[in-house]
Computed example of a mutant assay.
Amino acid sequence: MNELEITELNGKRVLTTQQIADGYGTTNKVISNNFNNNRTRFEEGKHFVLLVGEYLKEFLHSQNLGTQNKIRKLYLWTEKGALLHAKSLGTDEAWDMYDILVDTYFKVQEQQVPLTLDQQIAAIATGYGSVKEELVEVKDRVSDLEENAPLSAGEYNYIGSRITQRVNEVAHGYSSITQKQRGELYKDINRGVKVVTGISTRTQLRAKHFDTAMDFINNWEPSTATKMQLRQTSFDFEA
């Protein structure tokens, strides 16, 4: 357990099926069967996240697993998902390991802010330190927390869905299009999202990036270079 590798998605810790299997003293197949046999109990976004396509490629790249091309889909389990597996398996080993996961792996170090923002300001006004300096510090901390809050699973998935929709909208401008050409369109729009938000992989998106990313996606058109690539393969593009 001390050597358990940290796996994160969108700034939150998760576990792969292999990690759960190893920790609970069982196999991937048992975990997969447990999931399939109790499918109605598991809720996507709450207990697990399923990565496929471009999401999966970016995640594997962010985890330095880009060479594992045979992976077509990947389940990542949240703390609540790990709990459901422990409940379903019901073994002492699974429960013992779950307790360890909660106490160590999933434990988030809470920021110690004993007072609310209004209470802190009131304390400052009554002589708790320098009014100006303390107030600025509180505001900066609140602002930083808001800007760097991770995207919710719904927001993250919505961005992916909107990218797919926009690519399909642009693809309709072609008389016909191959899978390879569609892939070039995906590369172009994903590259643009990274540029306008200043990130290297989509998993680094934060709440502060959402509006910028959506504005870019909604107004995206392929770059001149991408258009030329597609023309060179003799498919007409309607500008």
Rank of each mutant, 00 (worst) to 15 (best):
N190G: 11
V170Y: 04
A171Q: 06
E184P: 00
R162E: 13
E169S: 13
L185N: 03
E155L: 07
K187M: 00
T164V: 09
I189R: 02
G154C: 05
L185P: 00
I159M: 11
T178R: 04
R162M: 09
G183Q: 15
H172R: 15
E155F: 04
E169R: 14
L151Q: 01
A153F: 10
E146L: 09
E155M: 10
R166A: 05
R182G: 02
K187V: 01
H172W: 04
P150G: 07
N148G: 04
E184F: 12
S161W: 05
S176P: 00
E146R: 13
G154K: 15
E184L: 13
Y186R: 06
K180D: 08
S161G: 09
Y158I: 03
T164L: 08
N157H: 09
Y186Q: 05
R182Y: 04
Y158W: 08
Q181P: 00
T164K: 15
R182D: 01
Q179W: 01
H172K: 15
E146A: 14
N190L: 09
R166H: 05
E184D: 13
A171C: 01
G154Y: 12
G154H: 13
S152E: 06
G183L: 08
A153H: 09
S175E: 13
I159F: 02
V167N: 02
E147V: 05
E169C: 05
A153P: 00
S176H: 14
G183E: 07
Q179V: 05
Y156H: 12
S175M: 07
A171M: 03
E155A: 13
L185A: 02
N168Y: 07
N168M: 09
T164F: 05
E169Y: 11
I189Y: 01
A153Y: 09
I177S: 10
I163N: 03
N148K: 10
E147N: 13
Q165R: 15
